[in-house]
């Protein structure tokens, strides 16, 4: 279970973009986070993945509080999250071929030996051919690059996927394909999902439960029914 308790975060301590937000993602659950642009959804997603230190509040992973942020977080806590960002161009090191991009987390965690095999096993699932794997980011389309970024997020078999506007830059068919990849992985691994988007239709079809950002852009509380929108037919835990 992933719990965010009373998170306040931002880039300037005097002007937090996220104020006192609490959110829970149960094992295997898909939670959508819906809100307008610039409201702080992405910041909250980065906090959830231990990539940004909040000014107040805690992230609790399976009952254990986060023991640090970014590099200071223990490796097993950090790698429990697979993150995919909105802009594939910015999320891919321009110097790495796609196969190295996907294998990078394995190499970084000392599992170099299985890298080639894991990439070969993962690539067809996300729709990348051998020929595409040999290319560099500037030689592929946004959609193809985002497929590689999703594969990189899956390569360590994370317990939670954090998809921050993963499909905002993509066309409908690529969106459907990537959502399909995420759902296939979740079915076989039981991983949880936090999907951030400004698109209510997408989240409604993708997630078990959608949390709407408060109107004031500040307070959002999972526990308060007034602030929570559930999609038809879903069961809020």
């Amino acid at each position: 279970m992933l719990e965010l308790h009373g998170i306040t975060a931002g880039y300037d301590p005097r002007k937090p973009v996220v104020r006192d937000v609490s959110l829970t993602v149960h094992d295997g659950e898909a939670v959508g986070l819906l809100g307008p642009s610039g409201c702080g959804k992405s910041t909250l997603a980065r906090v959830a993945a231990l990539l940004h230190r909040p000014t107040a509040g805690t992230v609790v992973i399976d009952g254990e509080p986060a023991r640090g942020w970014r590099h200071r977080a223990p490796r097993d806590q950090r790698t429990a999250f697979g993150v995919v960002f909105q802009q594939p161009r910015q999320s891919a090191d321009p110097r790495l071929r796609l196969r190295d991009l996907i294998a990078e987390p394995l190499r970084a965690t000392g599992r170099r030996a299985e890298a080639t095999e894991r990439v070969r096993a993962l690539a067809p699932g996300v729709g990348l051919s051998e020929e595409l794997l040999a290319r560099r980011p500037h030689e592929v389309s946004d959609g193809q690059l985002q497929r590689a970024c999703l594969a990189r997020a899956l390569v360590l078999r994370p317990r939670w996927l954090i998809c921050d506007e993963m499909t905002a830059m993509l066309d409908a068919s690529t969106t459907a394909a990537l959502v399909g990849v995420v759902e296939t992985y979740r079915r076989e691994s039981g991983a949880g999902l936090l999907a951030v988007s400004h698109d209510p239709v997408l989240l409604e079809r993708w997630c078990d439960r959608t949390v709407r950002w408060g109107d004031r852009g500040a307070a959002l509380n999972d526990a308060a029914p007034a602030e929570t929108a559930t999609s038809p037919g879903s069961t809020a835990p």
Binding site: A49, T79, F81, F85, Q90
Partner: peptide, 18 residues
């Protein structure tokens, strides 16, 4: 501040490796 650094950190890379 590029997202690919975030992705590397999330992928378990040490500060030296990043």
């Amino acid at each position: 501040t590029r997202p690919y650094v975030d992705a590397a950190v999330s992928g378990g890379a040490s500060r030296l490796r990043v």
